[in-house]
Write a protein that binds this DNA or RNA. Sequence first.
DNA 1: CCTTAATCCTGGAAGC
DNA 2: TGCTTCCAGGATTAAG
Length: 312
Amino acid sequence: MKVYAPGVKNLPRRIERGGDEGRRRIRAMPELPEVESVRRGLWPALGQRVRSVALRRPDVVEGERSAEALLRGCRITALRRHGKELMLCGGDDDQGRCVCVHLGMTGSLRYLAAGERDAHDADGHLHVEWTLDDGSRLRFRDPRRFGGVWTFANPPAARCARWDRLGPDALVVTGEALHQALRATSRALKAALLDQRVVAGLGNIYVDELLFLCGWSPSKVARTLKAAEVDELAARMRELLTRAIEAGGSTVRDYVDGRGQAGGYQDQHQVYGRGGRPCVRCGGLLRVTTVGGRTTVHCPACQVRRRPMGTG
DNA sequence: CCTTAATCCTGGAAGC
DNA sequence: TGCTTCCAGGATTAAG
């Protein structure tokens, strides 16, 4: 495990420097609150019929790539979300065509009213653009192309292929369901919570924030949490995500919601992006480590609850 | 079961 | 200043 002790020479400079200068350079990927904010921003598209589809980069689409598969001629009847996955439904009663969108790390899905323009009108990362009957548009853009679009004959087929592999949605997960998943793995708690099959929607930002709020060490073994402790973990998870959604998600660099609005939750981050800076609770320095293959920031003094091997 | 590493990709930061 | 190198990260897959 790579460990950066505070003040040590190999500490990345952006962390050492601290302040807003250090924070804003760290990127955010869309996690559940950001994806939900995108979904809520797309509501003006509901009820509209898709007039045309421009597929500029066919390889971002998996499955059938025809305009019809991408909802041309369909009326958009629902915008759904599970974890970080979005689903655009093209008909009533699970009958119409269906498109799933995953934003990956840098993906965005935006609604533009008729005639509305934005900074990305002509860049090379606009992969799919849907034009609706009233002249408004939906736009999928993804510079790094870790995201993508999947086409299905209908929503049940999409759920079967994609959503059924995901754990319960993190915004509404019960302690009981979470406990069932956590008790089945001996991985580090952080690694388990990042696994979308365990619980769907958490990424690096909100896992680190959640573990700080609960006082758990990221390397605590997942299966050793008691039922009551997982109840509390689930409750705090729902509360954290709800608050982040209320703030419009986190914008660390360039995330915007479905209407191009930046989020505000980054101002409430207590650990993410704050490695090497003082803990807001105890004043000690936050430590940057790697857990589950991911950069992890935690407070070694505050997050000592039930560490493995009784070391806490 | 578990872990780490490689893969995809680009832009921004750091290093020389 | 400019060029090169490194790095982040979600999900998946392979290898150890």
